[in-house]
Amino acid sequence: MNQPMTFMWNNETAEMAKKAGAAGGISETGAYEGDITSAIYTFGKDGSQSQALEISLDSNGLKANYLRINFLGKDGQQTFGMGLVSALMWAAQIKQAQPQQVQGKDGIEWHCPALVGKKVGLFLQKVLYTKNDNSDGYKFEVRHVFQPGTRKTYAEHAENAPADTIAALEVSMKDKDERTHGGAQFSGSRNASTGGNPYTNQTGNNPPQSRLQQNSGLPPADFDDDIPFAPIGLPFPSHSIYAL
């Protein structure tokens, strides 16, 4: 005969209480429309001139954090990620995104407040990786940007073409497996075709040491030098202010 549980208040249940009613996270490859809840610049170190924009998305209560778009390489030259940033501004309907210094817990951070609170559409690919302790983890990479509601990419909007790209990605794109131990090459229900996505086969969007890597043991990628938080007093380059 089953016995009913006696409920106790202790440290463990107190932590559970803190999480009561908390929204879940995005967990699958796919297209998501939602609000940008944060947008923070990250910078290269050890002489690297690389820069990235790290955003968080809330899609009807489902959240994705540490979505990184690298737009300057270690040599300071623009990468394909600049196109993603430009598309993000178009989807968010903003003409300029001015950086702003904010005092963070680890020092000065550069934020992009113009993007915060704006609704955008992102196609996210789930990437499986091996943590430093050899356990499995996953992150998400931004593969395309689209307009909420219409689901059109900027190219489709500019050419007055049907909204086909995101639908094609939903059918074709699978999770990406970068784990260093065993397992199949890909995981998920979609195949690895890009469906015409110009960003999928690029590697420049994966510089190492985002806050996700710092917090979860994600191993460094080979594209660029590490990009942690900006150190206190780091000047912000003028060419990183965007206008359509």
Results as ranks from 00 to 15, higher is better:
Q214N: 11
D133Y: 04
I166R: 08
G47I: 02
T165F: 00
V127L: 06
S193A: 15
L218N: 09
H111Q: 12
Q202D: 12
L128T: 07
A17M: 09
P228R: 03
N206S: 14
F123K: 03
N10A: 02
C112K: 02
L218C: 09
A192E: 09
S48D: 04
G137C: 10
M1N: 07
T37W: 01
S240E: 06
Y242R: 10
N134Q: 14
K176G: 00
N11H: 07
K152F: 03
N134L: 13
D35P: 00
G217M: 09
A243M: 03
G107N: 11
Q185C: 05
A22Q: 06
F186E: 08
G34H: 13
G117T: 06
G182D: 14
P231C: 11
F236C: 10
L57M: 13
C112W: 02
N2S: 08
L244R: 11
K174E: 05
L115W: 10
N70W: 00
Q185P: 10
K45W: 00
P162L: 05
P220K: 04
D222F: 01
E159M: 13
D225Q: 08
G121M: 09
L122G: 12
P231W: 08
S38Q: 08
I166M: 04
V116C: 10
L62V: 02
Q78G: 01
D226A: 14
P162C: 10
R190I: 02
A92M: 03
H239G: 01
A184C: 06
G182L: 10
F140S: 05
P207K: 05
L212R: 07
T6V: 14
Y154A: 11
G30W: 06
Q214P: 05
G195M: 07
E54A: 05
Q3H: 11
P4S: 13
